[in-house]
Design a protein around this nucleic acid. Structure first.
Length: 466
RNA sequence: GACCCCGUAGUCUAAAGGUUAGGAUGCCGGCCUUUCAAGCCGGAGAUGCUCGGUUCAAGCCCGGCCGGGGUCGCCA
């Protein structure tokens, strides 16, 4: 049997970070077993479903580098098929019409609450014949679920989970308006799509028990279930709006690389011994459900940034320059000149090991594209007081005599000057750093001079001479 | 409240029932050094939620307690 998994998000406006991990696990599991993943949009709630929301999800998946086979499947489009299955169940005596009014249901809910149990429909229409149907009011179709015994699933992550049937009620399959409920739609779609493994968040664990009842009454073989623990916020509660960034696009905007997010998400709830840096090819080779833990993991941004800095340092420098240029254009709000663009590949190596995100990389590269006179940060300005102007004057004169503007000659010139003036290198380097970058921290000072070039360097230093 | 799941440093986690509970991240310190990083070295941080039981031996198996989470719709 070939492995077919599916990722089935509701189109709520973005690809949720938890959903992204679910998608990643589905994708890795399928790839590992030589199968494939399908994408199904759970859009039966028409009020909340828009094309834009669907696009946000597919964009997020593309960015993360996760693909699926064929077109995304709309659950809503399959409503007729779902209704057909409900009617078949009805014809087979495995489901029945229920004419309960919302008021009756509310009353049952009240009673249940008062008695300290969970809400359960009491099955009052379960054994009534069609002749008892009221003249007005369309019925819903409910499943005639077993009333004794227990329903069991053998979950690949959670193990055997058993719920007594007496704990459950007869769920609605088809609404009064003839539209299918989620519970029915999921079962029918997973069956029709020949899904072999359902990998999803464990907030669906109790749903799996109910879905199992539908499979059983339908006489269908249920797929394997694997309910993975949810991702929680730093406070241990389910990730929600108040925790801040929820969608993957927010991480993209923060300058997180897809490779880093994949690696981070992979290690949240899954492990392979002591391995931490796991690239995607390796993940496909290693990933399986037995490595998935059962407890919820908290989202930890510092760890994500640590992995991100690793992937920034190890990625192809040409690609990184491209990303840096894009980021600079966006923060500056203008195009880069040819001279400015030319500095990027020169400076990328020392810059990239100082940045945890693309945003930070662009910030640290800002001096390469800043116009004169340079804006001075407070800590940089304080480096330009006292003896500093005098040192800068000497440095300026010294640098003017450097004919071939290369790293070796620049190093020799400045070191020579420090020696001749009996100064520590720092006494020269720090004022130079401030004058050249407007900051008190930067790559090595000889590199900075080299990246900026002769004219720009001398001009920037000159701006601080009286 | 009912049902279900979980419980190893702040966080993510490792360890056929058998060393001093290992790694990563974060934090602190050192080396390097023109600054900031990176890199290397070192340090603190876990009475394994807790109380019992089984066993020669329990983080691991069993039971209870406590704590956390999830689910209880004609939402998905």
């Amino acid at each position: 049997m070939s492995v077919i998994t599916r990722f089935a998000p509701s189109p709520t406006g973005f690809l949720h970070i938890g959903g992204a991990r679910t998608a990643l696990f589905n994708w890795l599991f399928a790839k590992h077993h030589g199968g494939h993943m399908l994408l199904r949009i759970e859009d039966t709630d028409r009020a909340r479903s828009t094309d834009a929301a669907v696009a946000a999800i597919t964009d997020g998946l593309h960015w993360l580098g996760l693909d699926w086979q064929g077109e995304a499947i709309s659950q809503f489009a399959r409503a007729d098929r779902h209704a057909e299955v409900a009617r078949q169940l009805l014809a087979d005596g495995k489901a029945y019409h229920c004419y309960c009014t919302p008021a009756e249901l509310a009353e049952m809910r009240e009673t249940a609450k008062a008695e300290g149990r969970s809400m359960r429909y009491d099955g009052r229409w379960r054994d009534r014949g069609p002749d008892e149907a009221p003249r007005d009011g369309a019925p819903v179709i409910r499943l005639k679920a077993p009333r004794s015994g227990a329903t069991v699933i053998n979950d690949l992550v959670q193990g055997q989970v058993t719920v007594q049937n007496a704990e459950m009620d007869d769920m609605v399959l088809l609404r009064a308006d003839g539209t299918p409920t989620y519970m029915l739609a999921v079962v029918v779609d997973d069956h029709d799509m020949a899904i072999s493994h359902i990998i999803r968040g464990d907030d669906h664990l109790t749903n799996a028990i109910r879905q199992r009842q539908i499979y059983d009454l339908l006489g269908w073989t249920a797929p394997h279930f694997a309910h993975i623990p949810l991702i929680h916020g730093a406070d241990g509660a389910k990730l929600s709006k108040r925790h801040g960034a929820l969608g993957v696009e927010a991480y993209r905007e923060m300058g997180i690389l897809p490779a880093a997010l994949r690696n981070y998400l992979l290690r949240l709830g899954w492990s392979h011994g002591d391995d931490e840096i796991i690239e995607t090819e390796q993940a496909i080779a290693w990933f399986d459900l037995d490595g998935v833990g059962k407890s919820a993991a908290r989202f930890d941004t510092p760890r994500l940034e640590n992995l991100n800095s690793h992937y920034i340092r190890s990625m192809d420098e040409g690609e990184l320059c491209q990303l840096l240029a894009d980021q600079l254009r966006s923060t500056l709000g203008r195009d880069l000149s040819a001279t400015e663009s030319g500095r990027l590949p020169l400076a990328i190596r020392p810059l990239k090991e100082r940045a945890k995100t693309l945003l930070e990389l662009a910030d640290k590269a800002e001096f390469l594209v800043a116009g004169r006179p340079l804006a001075m940060e407070a800590k940089a300005a304080s480096l330009l007081t006292g003896e500093a102007p005098a040192q800068l004057a000497k440095a300026h004169a010294c640098l003017q005599s450097v004919e071939d503007w290369n790293l070796d000659d620049l190093t020799a010139a400045i070191r020579g000057l420090a020696e001749a003036e009996d100064l520590k290198l720092g006494q020269l380097a720090q004022p130079l750093r401030a004058a050249l970058t407007g900051r008190n921290a930067s790559p090595g000072i000889f590199e900075v001079l080299y990246f900026l070039g002769r004219q720009e360097s001398l001009d920037r230093i000159g701006d601080h001479l009286v």
